[in-house]
Write a protein that binds this DNA or RNA. Sequence first.
DNA 1: CTGAAAGCGCTTACAG
DNA 2: CTGAAAGCGCTTACAG
Lengths: 337, 337
Amino acid sequence: MKSNVTMRDIADKLGISSVTVSKALNDKDGVSEELKERIKTLAGEMGYRFNTVAKSMKEGLTYNIGVVIPERFTGPGQSFYLHIYQQISRALEPYGYYGILHILHREDEEQLNLPRIYYDRKVDGFILLGQVSKPYIELVQTMDQPKMFLDFYDEHADIDSVVTDNFYGAYELTNYLIAQGHRDIAYVGNIYSTSSIQDRFLGYYKSLLEHRLPLRNEWVLSDRDDEGSYVEMELPQPLPTAFVCNCDQVAHNLVHKLMGLGYRVPEDCSVVGFDNDVYATLIVPQLTTVGVDIEQMARTAVDSMMKKISHPGSRFGRVLVQGHIVYRDSVQSLERS
Amino acid sequence: MKSNVTMRDIADKLGISSVTVSKALNDKDGVSEELKERIKTLAGEMGYRFNTVAKSMKEGLTYNIGVVIPERFTGPGQSFYLHIYQQISRALEPYGYYGILHILHREDEEQLNLPRIYYDRKVDGFILLGQVSKPYIELVQTMDQPKMFLDFYDEHADIDSVVTDNFYGAYELTNYLIAQGHRDIAYVGNIYSTSSIQDRFLGYYKSLLEHRLPLRNEWVLSDRDDEGSYVEMELPQPLPTAFVCNCDQVAHNLVHKLMGLGYRVPEDCSVVGFDNDVYATLIVPQLTTVGVDIEQMARTAVDSMMKKISHPGSRFGRVLVQGHIVYRDSVQSLERS
DNA sequence: CTGAAAGCGCTTACAG
DNA sequence: CTGAAAGCGCTTACAG
């Protein structure tokens, strides 16, 4: 397979013009069926491969989408966003598009440097995967290319976004705990950290409200600082009977902590998570949690992005992707006991 | 920031030619310092962004590297290769290159379809990350572009590769067990499945040989079928005092299994893993294992790939990247007891 | 130091 | 149905 075969090479061999070869190879009108077949056959024999770059130049499209993930979400043990990226790559396939991953370094986020893929015009659009700082969001808005947020959103930024229905998921999960007889339920998560954590908290709160249960400040436990680094947390005394954690990793850590202090989960204390990631099943008891539909989120984001590229200026707002509760073994029913 | 600013636009504003603008912006000779400055300033003001596509077309380079990962290594809970991909992206940065991830679907591997990035000429080279079938390896060799294997190799295929020093790592780890007084040591892994598992086995075996310990067939336990799917494994009776597992995930599963059967780890039985991934620390006791230097592997692969692109036809063979033992709590010393 | 000409490999009108 | 011309935005010789 020689690589440097061009349409002109094929045209020359057949004594025709490269225009006709282009039409044939792209299945466009204006070539007889018979000639088209001959061209395609010869192209195959000569090992012709399409030169996407030339097409890109003509059309002004790169057929790449940039997926930007802040560095802090990509450490060891943090594979959630990498898996979403993988699903994005997949979802782009049928469109003939490719995904280019860009890890947004801490310094670049702080110093407000746009990703290099922007300055290099490597992509036709950006998917920002994972919450960035407010100033960075504002910076992103100055880019004159289609862009969207995935798995977070910002009230003030007028950028389309696709997020899990965090609010409803946490609401349902808390309802479930209450249905199991729990009344003393704490929430774990820094509610000023990300929109996801905040919305999950509000879903938890709505459930409390609906059941006329009080929201107790000492039962809203911060698990990380505002930058997202985990901090050691203080357990309230007396212990609530259940904890709604903002993610599986934190739920996982909490279970370990409780066990270390001699409590049994779920007998002494129930714990639920969110995300249904590795952490949910890498512990005994396995965690009851909310499964996020990664595939659906990626597909929704990609479909929307493609529309934005083909119809510049189009908007679709904030799209919620529903999750579903995964029932496992970390919740005790208080009804029976 | 308007996007459609070209070098010509800048040239026109300054009443000069686009050639001069090109030279200035690329810091090439042939422009006076003063003019160069004026050009750069204006480019900044006009929001000029380099059109990589045009450069690509001229040079015949895409400035992309394809990273191909077989689908079976990318499931939920399997983030090792995604993390390597991430490090590859990073390592490509200083070269002005980008990484395009391509998940090799099961069907495409079976039906011997080359990745679409090949036919679309999207990349200047390929990094195959994760073992593929023999026939697919042969197919890959027909591609007329730089290519290399990462984290596996094939004896017969004459393709450059970068791998962890599996042999030496397992050898050292087994030596450590023996130093702790262990004599009855089993190996867990299907030794026909991948070259990594095979080499780790041989490292284990070498350690046995050096210490004049017999290799017992019933102590070489298969953990997966030849396609890589995990299978339930039979524990030998009587139990050895230690297990060398081919990876952390399998070690993790084994510990669970042993505990389920009422054994204590490491008191009744020591278990070591390989990779130092999430699975190593998500269990009590945390696993003693061999840490793979993901960053170094990615960097080595990228540096080599860049050489292959700039010097076509260059070879560097099989490069080993050293790992290091991470001592944790899953090994009991038999000397003291 | 500066620039006119040609070309990278395609595609898009348009003409025959 | 087929093709000559022009152009996408740059860069590489080469000439002045």
